[in-house]
Write a protein that binds this DNA or RNA. Structure first.
Length: 927
DNA sequence: CTCTCCCGCCATTCA
DNA sequence: TGAATGGCGGGAGAG
């Protein structure tokens, strides 16, 4: 140490804090970062470097001061810092030189000392920001790293934070704040290049918007909620959630193979191992153009991934793959991947500083992985300050190279706008925004078009009235064929209606061009039962958002029912309307029936009343119906039938409601059909803290929700004629039944009755295909997922308890697991072993969410011949099979059982996902 | 070693 | 045409 000590000039020594100088005057090099490795150099060299640096720094400071005065309002080109080779001009460059000369810490201290000795304290902050920071940092072990412009201190996130502190988070209405990039760069003492990075991301969330060269308008976070909502709507419309889920399945399966040597056949059968070119098909994820690689657009896509994911956690690898559009990209070799990761780090750091995301660690099969979790405003809950306007400040802003929300340069948006213009002659009356706050920033040459678009959007918002021409046209077209206007719509989907769809027990029916809403009796929404799954936007808002983006949305006849149709994950289906939204208040109270159209490409009506649908629905001829459809229905429970508070008259018809997003020309990317969405569905709605009695009450008082998913298999491995139905029946806030039954359209005639809880009678009727699946080569399975404790009929007489004993080690050793359950009425315990980790994609926040599915593998399959291709069956031994009873009095034997174990895959640092809820998956023969 | 991500070259876009 | 932007990847700090 003494040797090193001798190399340190006295003036540097004196600048060291006491913390680094021992009582005997000897420098404690252990507390001087980098000193050990860098301080061995000639004193003359050090002094020379210091002098050069000091002189240069002073020169730089003077220049900056002059420029600062000069550039108050001018747009200027940054000084070319490379004009002086060998003579770095910027502090950063100086420091780089210094780093080679001596410890940066020592150098900084020397600088600080010189700075503060030569100048008074009136030096502008911009001149000595770093120094000031350094001076005031207490010298602690943690703070040591902050001495000097360490790498962390120069991080983009920190820089962004400093940027944000320069302007009000929520500026007053009408307050116009302009940003000069030069000033900011000067203020923050960074290169312009870094400012561009920050501004681009801020622009992507509409915190700023560009108004002219070198000038931006500051909006703060006033538009943040709206922007996020738009991103979510766009992501939903593009069904990115499904894609993400598919990719997660794919990744999970691959890891499964790597770790355990086998993948899940069902996932494979559902196409999870299909190539992921679909990620590149979407224009939103098309990286072909330079502008599509913009940091801002990338930021929006990145945010979108969070907004549509369940849970809102994604890792960079997954994001990069999605953004690149190649799931098989080599993450270690591929330069493209590395670059993408770099950019995502940049974005993530900025978004982190915006408190939109935070870094977490996710434990997966292969271990702990870093990831980011969305922590921004929850746009899934009511109360979100989402305005009807494109932007909350009334400024129709999204017109930039760096926004996928750009409705000017986005062709699809433009086409939609044109279509609306053609079909809707209207005078542009603007009601958006606050009249006194319509600040429009004109940067784009197509500003006029921008205004036109804004007007169109406004009209669209206003056109929610029943007499909208567009609506009328669309609504009148209910013959199953595409109307001209529909065909013109540049949408990804198209409407395929089923005329005359009827559903029993409907309290109201809504028919629109692309949607059918089936309403049943209203059921009172108990405050305590408010679901965590709330869609914050009204239908009008969603429509407006979708229209402003690129997704044609149905024009509703009755807006009272529209708020329920936002495409969103099943979790969010519990729609509790926000009272703050006028015109939808009634809906709020009676969200009895929800038809959720999850697949925008295939708006096909599905009903659980086969006898009515069947005749009007042509028998499936395989490829005759290239549609995927999901319809979610909620049926009022008998006890609630008398409480009809619905203002909507009963109407025994169903309304097809589906977004017309299918691309008529381009075949829709095939979608995997799997249980994932349902399993992950927080719609299970386990209310934390809710007790059993409450659930029981709810079970009786509330209606059941049935989600029917009819989809053409997205897998290349299965027959194209295969069709499946998934039904999720929410029996209460705590119980969900999921039945997956490949059916033909005429096969939904034999509902299965599931006996639940204390309900003595029928609770659920599920269409079960009979005798069709084998002929059609379909997977003959009926899958029911029951939460822990749910009871099933056994032999049509007994309720069978299915207690699941979970071992905490299960998640870590999924290969060999034995589960045993028994019926209280039966002395025959049933067990199965050799369960297989099936899926990890369903980790959701909240109690009862499922992330990992364990199901038995085929080794002990005892499936009956009717079990078809399904290869999983429990070892039921010699005991009597467990049956599900169908409505016709027959019984459907259960052929397999699986268990949903607690979510273990995703574990944030606070372990908020470590619930031990579980459920049972029962597979039965459908014949 | 991998993970992060700063840095600035230089291509592209803009005015 | 020069200035304004910003894509990109080398390479180094951090862990």
């Amino acid at each position: 140490m003494s040797q090193v000590d001798n190399l340190i000039p006295d003036h540097i020594k004196s600048s060291l804090s006491e913390a680094e100088v021992d009582s005997d005057g000897e420098i404690n090099m252990d507390r001087v970062p980098f000193a050990k490795n860098t301080i061995r150099m000639d004193l003359k060299q050090i002094d020379k470097s210091l002098k050069a640096m000091s002189a240069q720094q002073n020169k730089e400071n003077k220049r900056n001061m002059m420029e600062s005065d000069e550039n108050q309002n001018r747009t200027c080109t940054p000084v070319n810092e490379t004009e002086h080779p060998g003579q770095p001009l910027t502090p950063t460059a100086n420091l780089k030189v210094l780093f080679n000369a001596m410890s940066p810490e020592l150098r900084n201290r020397d600088e600080q000392k010189a700075q503060y000795s030569d100048e008074d304290n009136n030096v502008s902050l911009s001149q000595d920001y770093e120094f000031e920071t350094i001076i005031e940092v207490p010298i602690t072990a943690e703070a040591e790293n902050k001495f000097g412009p360490s790498r962390k201190e120069k991080s983009l996130g920190l820089l962004c934070q400093r940027f944000l502190t320069m302007y009000p988070e929520y500026p007053e209405k009408g307050e116009k704040i302009e940003i000069c990039l030069d000033e900011v760069a000067s203020e923050l003492q960074v290169e312009r290049r870094r400012i561009y990075d920050i501004v681009n991301v801020l622009e992507s969330v509409e915190i700023v918007s560009r108004v002219a060269k070198n000038r931006y308008a500051w909006h703060g976070k006033r538009n943040l909620g709206t922007t996020l909502a738009k991103l979510k709507a766009l992501g939903d419309s593009e069904r990115f959630g499904e894609q993400i889920q598919k990719l997660k399945d794919f990744e999970f399966n691959r890891e499964l193979e790597e770790q355990f040597g086998r993948s899940d056949p069902r996932l494979k059968a559902n196409g999870v191992d299909a190539d992921f070119s679909i990620f590149g098909e979407s224009s939103l994820f098309n990286q072909a153009l330079r502008k599509d690689k913009s940091l801002g657009i990338m930021s929006q896509k990145f945010l979108m991934l969070f907004l549509v994911s369940k849970p809102k956690t994604v890792n960079l690898d997954l994001s990069a793959k999605l953004l690149i559009g190649d799931a098989n990209i080599d993450r270690t070799e591929n330069a493209k991947f590395k670059t993408k990761i770099r950019r995502l780090y940049d974005i993530a750091n900025i978004l982190t500083s915006l408190n939109l995301i935070k870094k977490v660690h996710v434990t997966e099969i292969r271990g702990r992985k870093p990831a980011f979790k969305y922590i921004g405003p929850d746009i899934d809950v009511p109360g979100t300050d989402v305005q009807l306007t494109c932007c909350s400040d009334g400024c129709h802003r999204p017109s930039t190279r760096h926004s996928i929300l750009d409705c000017i340069q986005n062709n699809r948006v433009a086409k939609i706008i044109d279509a609306y213009k053609e079909s809707t002659p209207r005078s542009s009356s603007s009601s958006e925004g606050e009249g006194d706050d319509k600040v429009r920033f004109s940067r784009h040459s197509s500003f006029e078009t921008l205004c036109a678009v804004a007007s169109v959007e406004t009209n669209k918002l206003n056109s929610s009235a029943p007499n909208s021409p567009v609506k009328g046209d669309k609504a009148s077209d209910n013959k199953g064929a595409l109307s001209d206007s529909e065909a013109k719509l540049p949408t990804r989907g198209f409407v395929r209606r089923r005329p005359g769809l009827k559903v029993d027990d409907l309290s109201s029916v809504e028919k629109t061009a692309d949607a059918i809403i089936i309403k049943t009796r209203p059921q009172p929404v108990k405050p305590a039962m408010k679901q965590p799954t709330i869609i914050p936007l009204t239908k009008e808002q969603i429509d407006a958002v979708l229209r402003s983006l690129k997704v044609p949305v149905p024009v509703k006849k009755n807006q009272l029912t529209d708020a329920t149709t936002q495409s969103s994950p099943p979790v969010d289906d519990q729609m509790v309307m926000n009272e703050g939204y006028e015109g939808v208040t009634e809906v709020k109270e009676e969200q009895q029936v929800e038809m959720k159209e999850l697949n925008e490409k295939t708006p096909v009506v599905m009903s659980n009343t086969p006898e009515r649908i069947g005749p009007k629905r042509p028998a499936p001829t395989g490829d005759s119906i290239p549609l995927e459809k999901r319809v979610k229905l909620t049926f009022a429970s008998p006890s609630s039938l008398g409480d009809d508070k619905s203002p909507v008259p009963m109407n025994p018809e169903a309304v097809l409601r589906c977004k017309k997003t299918a691309d008529v020309v381009k075949p829709s990317p095939q979608r995997a059909l799997h249980l994932t969405p349902e399993f992950s569905n927080p719609k299970v709605s386990l209310v934390p803290g809710g007790d059993a009695s409450n659930m029981e009450t709810e079970e009786r008082s509330q209606g059941k929700k049935i989600e029917i998913v009819i989809s053409e298999s997205g897998s290349k491995l299965v027959s194209p004629v295969r069709r499946s139905v998934q039904e999720v029946v929410q029996l209460s806030n705590a119980q969900t039944i999921l039945i997956q039954s490949p059916i033909s359209t005429s096969a939904t005639k034999s509902p299965t009755v599931v006996h639940l809880g204390s309900q003595p009678t029928t609770i659920l009727q599920l269409p079960v295909q009979q005798g069709q699946q084998q002929r059609l080569g379909q997977m003959a399975t009926t899958t029911i997922t029951l939460p822990q404790g749910m009871q099933l009929l056994q032999n049509g007489q007994h309720l069978m308890q299915l207690p699941i004993s979970l071992n905490s080690s299960v998640p870590n050793s999924p290969r060999v697991i034995t589960y045993t359950f028994s019926s209280p009425q039966s002395s025959h315990p049933t067990s199965f072993t050799n369960a297989q980790l099936l899926s990890n994609q369903n980790s959701n926040k909240g109690v009862g969410n499922l992330s990992t599915l364990i199901r038995p593998v085929a080794s002990k399959a005892t499936a009956s011949p009717q079990a078809g291709s399904y290869n999983a069956a429990p070892s039921l031994g010699n005991q009597s099979p467990i049956y599900l009873r169908n409505s016709s009095g027959g019984f459907v034997p259960i052929s397999s059982v699986a268990v949903n174990v607690p979510k273990v895959i995703v574990a944030s640092s606070n372990h908020s996902h470590g619930d031990l809820s579980s459920s049972v998956l029962i597979t039965g023969d459908t014949s």
